[in-house]
Computed example of a mutant assay.
Amino acid sequence: MAPDVTLFEVGPRDGLQSRGEMVTTADKIELVDTLSRTGLRKIEATSFVAPRWVPQMADAPEVMAGISRMPGVTYAALTPNLKGLERALAAGCDEVAIFAAASEGFSRANLNCSIAGSFERFAPVLDRAKASGTPVRGYLSTVIACPYDGPTAPEDVARWTRRLLEAGCYEVSLGDTIGAGTEETLNALLDRLLEEVGADRLAGHFHDTSGRATDLVSLSLDRGLRTFDASIGGLGGCPYAPGAPGNVDTRRVLEVIEAHGLTHGVDMRALESAETVVRAIGAV
């Protein structure tokens, strides 16, 4: 039977991409392969971005070519533009992701364009993905607060979430990019979002900057969300979001899911092997 909750493991991409140091291709492949043996069903393996902007992901084709694919595991990649999508398709990625922001300041810092401009850039990516039958996931950053603009209005988050879904994304991952969320602010956001978007089209992506990420996962479970992004060992952060040191740890999210009496399908003992790999490559 399928588990109640889906964990989207983002450590190999979001986690390693945020590091200033380079990680070898062999170590990246070992990490993905070890994660593949845990029971995780979704792994974001790499990112097809311009090497001059993100040199940590310059070996994306080699990583995809080198991993040992496990049946039942979806291997995803971030593809910010059409060139990146074509490279991801050539590498055999099962699904791809695009990213937008709910605040103008973060959009300009991260994407060097307005939010509306980012959607213009996405259009050919979404058209090509649809033509190839490739699922597209949407990331929406700064859904609680922005390091440049301050608090984000729930109505703004709702508007851009709708736009991502209408554009063709099957799901939108709600990113508390600087870890500013509280139970009060998240409740206010979900009150607005769930008026028009089903919980099954939303995922939670929480940074643990203030030590509240697991509380937000717990609240999201209570509100009906059943997909969460998490990063092995808490790897992650964002160079465009000062003060946001890391994503919520995969193990901690799994423990919250179990505390709610829900299943996740991940072998916790096998997860230890992945945590060992992360420590061995010096990523935490």
Rank of each mutant, 00 (worst) to 15 (best):
D215I: 01
N110P: 08
L31F: 10
G66W: 11
Y240L: 01
M70Q: 13
G138E: 07
P61G: 06
R212M: 08
A102L: 02
L194C: 13
M1I: 07
T182S: 13
R201Q: 15
C93Y: 03
E184I: 14
T142D: 14
A213M: 00
N187L: 14
A213V: 00
I29R: 09
L89V: 13
T182K: 11
S103K: 08
A129S: 15
L85I: 04
M268N: 01
A60F: 06
F99I: 14
V136G: 10
S118V: 05
W160Q: 04
L193I: 10
T46M: 00
V172I: 13
I178F: 01
N81A: 11
G211K: 10
G211D: 08
P55M: 12
P12H: 10
E30G: 07
V157W: 03
T6E: 13
A129T: 09
Q17S: 06
G150C: 07
M57W: 10
G233M: 14
S107V: 07
L78V: 14
P124A: 13
P51Q: 11
D267W: 08
P151C: 09
G15I: 04
E86P: 10
V256M: 02
P71E: 02
L82S: 08
L221E: 01
S68N: 07
I29C: 13
G105S: 04
N187W: 08
T263M: 03
M57H: 14
A259S: 15
S173N: 09
A102Y: 01
K42E: 13
R159S: 09
L202T: 01
D14P: 01
G92W: 00
M64Y: 15
D59T: 05
A230W: 03
V278F: 08
A180P: 04
S47A: 14
L216K: 00
V136L: 12
R37A: 15
L82N: 06
T161R: 12
Y139G: 05
R269C: 12
E258C: 12
N112E: 07
P3K: 10
T79H: 02
R269V: 06
L85E: 06
V284P: 10
L216N: 01
G233R: 13
S18Q: 13
V63D: 03
I257G: 01
A230M: 05
A50E: 10
V49M: 09
D127M: 07
D208P: 03
Y170K: 09
A158T: 08
L202N: 02
S173E: 04
R137E: 09
S220A: 04
F8V: 14
A76H: 09
S218K: 11
L202Q: 02
S132D: 15
E183Q: 14
P80M: 12
L165V: 06
T34Q: 14
D149W: 07
G224Y: 10
V157I: 01
G265A: 05
